[in-house]
Design a protein around this nucleic acid. Structure first.
Lengths: 157, 157
DNA sequence: TGTTTATGAGAGTCTTTTATCCAAAATAGG
DNA sequence: CCTATTTTGGATAAAAGACTCTCATAAACA
């Protein structure tokens, strides 16, 4: 698997948050329900994102988590590296310690280039951009539901 | 981790074999010693490569494994997919089942493109090509040793 | 005060990956 | 035929990852 499952969930959650009114705190329970991710598991992942300075949280009634910056300013790479660690995009394809420009393995150059393709794609894509695309084309965010699920706000009913 | 540890070992082993006289059976024990990989573990990995038609084996004295085709004709992708499975380069970045052109997730297009960068790099690189590079520039194949370790053949001493 | 909600630590389960071991089968050579 | 060599395949074990759950604490609200 290229990305860990935690990372995949983290991306889904980040997109979910970017699709909300900016600045509003969203309870984790609500996210776990909508995204069909175990509440406890998602909690751990979001705690990581909070610790890494991507989210901020607020306790108590009407509490929850929210993005620290606007979605426009958050590239996917931030989420991926916060969860899977920066080694993900620096590791040697042959597993050699210290593999790099100075002491490369035979695959180093090509591998680095291919990896950087992923990296730059993740650097160039922002949460907002994907949310926009998801809304415009009504794409999926869970196995069944698309971005529209996020709008059926039933508060006050 | 982008590639599993098994896959990484499999690549090292494939390069090792491509650096040997073509057609000669190399005992797994010798490979595990030189490549500093656990004999038993490497055995399992090579069995997979044999089952996938990349290697062939021969039992008994002077037995071992060898590449079925010449290294020129073996792209890295063969080894990677034989071990990590083809899902590796088709999985959805958001983990959605059935994500594809017909039912994409918001990240699908960009992710597919980035993944394909890795894929085509692995398709275009052959074992021989890397062995050649490794020899020419005397690069590493283990944490300590380079391709030269493969030449100290001590038979008949 | 009591309820809501996140935090942090931790225990426990399940699955997959990584790693080790052993008996069986095949083969070569004496 | 006997023995040493080497792969095969099954079984097992250890470690890591993916979860589930609980509990005690803290902050905020009403």
């Amino acid at each position: 698997m290229l990305l860990s499952k935690s990372c995949v969930y983290g991306l889904r959650a980040a997109l979910f948050l970017a699709n909300q009114e900016h600045g509003k705190f969203i309870p984790i329970r609500q996210m776990s329900d909508k995204l069909e991710i175990s509440f406890h598991f998602l909690t751990k992942i979001l705690q990581q994102l909070t610790a890494e300075g991507i989210l901020e949280s607020f306790k108590g009634p009407n509490g929850g988590v929210r993005l620290i910056k606007r979605g426009e300013q958050i590239p996917l790479i931030d989420v991926v590296l916060a969860i899977d660690g920066s080694e993900l995009l620096t590791e040697c394809a042959l597993g050699l310690p210290g593999c790099g420009v100075k002491e490369p393995c035979p695959l180093h150059d090509k591998w680095a280039e291919a990896r950087d393709g992923i990296r730059s794609m993740l650097e160039e894509s922002t949460l907002t951009e994907l949310v926009q695309k998801g809304r415009d084309e009504n794409l999926r965010l869970t196995s069944e539901n698309g971005f529209d699920i996020l709008f059926e706000v039933k508060e006050g009913v």
